[in-house]
Design a protein around this nucleic acid. Structure first.
Lengths: 235, 235
DNA sequence: ACCTGAACACCGTTCAAGT
DNA sequence: ACCTGAACACCGTTCAAGT
């Protein structure tokens, strides 16, 4: 069960390239009719091609051969657009089977602002709750825990995305590693003692461990709040 | 030990209003001489008064009665500025004693992009490592764990900040609660069963629980990687 | 050295006016 | 209805020119 959940959330971080958007095979079809669907579809392509920071209203409008104002007929604002894109990506992942290939820069950052309630997002939550339940985790802990897992996933994804954006991202990483390694032993003794451990492991390894930590902790850490769920019936 | 760590990180999320910036008591002193210090100080005030999304180069320059270009003498870019502000705020918190009052909208979001290596940030990491060590947590787990704790803290802070920004933030929350409560029982059975649990508890309660989960999980979840730290000497 | 006006290349969002 | 040009109010960053 734990492994299942881990894989599920890992997919959010490394969104696989499952659902290729059909942009039509012509170079550029003579201006497609605007609709929420084509807007989101083009936004997804833009995300894959150029990263989240490029899926802006203006850029997207340009891609659709129109002005930004036109998009507001189908989409309330940028946050909603990003939410729709997330839900679209979520549609592409199988929630129960290991999906473990490809990588896609973040977009989940927008989730920090707008908790989307698209159908695919709800499906994700539902599946996670079910799995935790199967694992014997009490309802309230499972409920709060899903939130925690999502937060972890989105945070990692955001970091991932950000890192991808900046050209000297690896340099930054290296600088951190260097700073940590050469830190004053008297000023920061514990950091000095931890040494390379602070930056050891691959991203995947750490991600996997993080979810194990969370799932283990969620399963064993009680809350002080009373549950509001109906007592588990025999179902 | 766990409670100590929890409080420490909770302070990042709810940065207390400890270190009031001395903006001088005159209405506006006849243009202070520019320096990194006053820039950061004014940025901190701006943060407290108007939120992170307002501490931009241009807004800050305006506040300092100058043009944005002038700031680039003292600060490399916006990310570095935000990092400096975070470190400044970190300076204001006592890392060992319960600091539990006031609340401050996020800024830690910038940490997602730029892992700051300011002295106060390092002190935070060092203290956390020490506390985990005292709690008997193996070195590697502690090292990876600190990262996780920081991620959780910044993620929560970011969400917090974002929520503060938008005027209809509470509405959004309510909408989510409503969506979750009225969700189709056949489509999303686990969500329906969880009911109010998904949105129960106060922010503080959930935060506290989250850190308990993390600390408990960190302490008990082994890694598959070998440690690179020197074997614990008798010190 | 330090400072800055002006420019370049972007943003989100609204609204009156068009078809 | 649907679409849009133009405007408003912002961004970050650079650079030549000033003191």
């Amino acid at each position: 069960v734990a492994a299942n959940i881990t894989n599920m959330f890992a997919t959010i971080v490394y969104v696989p390239d499952i659902k290729r958007v059909p942009v039509s095979r012509r170079d550029r079809p003579a201006k497609p009719p605007l609709s929420r669907e084509v807007i989101v579809a083009v936004a997804v392509r833009l995300l894959r091609d150029e990263g989240l920071e490029r899926v802006t209203m203006r850029r997207l409008a340009h891609e659709l051969d129109t002005g930004p104002a036109s998009l507001y007929v189908y989409v309330q604002n940028t946050a909603e657009l990003h939410g729709a894109v997330l839900d679209e990506l979520l549609a592409g992942i199988d929630l129960r089977i290991e999906a473990d290939a490809g990588s896609q820069p973040s977009l989940a950052r927008s989730v920090l602002a707008l908790r989307p309630s698209g159908p695919n997002y709800l499906r994700l939550i539902d599946t996670a709750l079910a799995l935790l339940g199967i694992g014997g985790v009490p309802t309230l802990q499972a409920a709060w825990g899903v939130d925690l897992l999502l937060q972890q996933a989105t945070a990692t994804a955001a970091e991932h995305g950000t890192r991808h954006e900046s050209p000297d991202a690896e340099t930054e990483q290296d600088v951190l590693a260097l700073v940590l390694r050469e830190v004053s032993e008297t000023e920061y003794p514990s950091i000095a003692r931890a040494g390379g451990d602070l930056v050891s492991g691959t991203g995947r390894e750490r991600l996997r461990w993080a979810f194990e930590v969370l799932i283990g902790g969620i399963a064993t850490t009680g809350t002080t709040s009373p549950t509001t769920a109906s007592p588990a019936a025999a179902d």
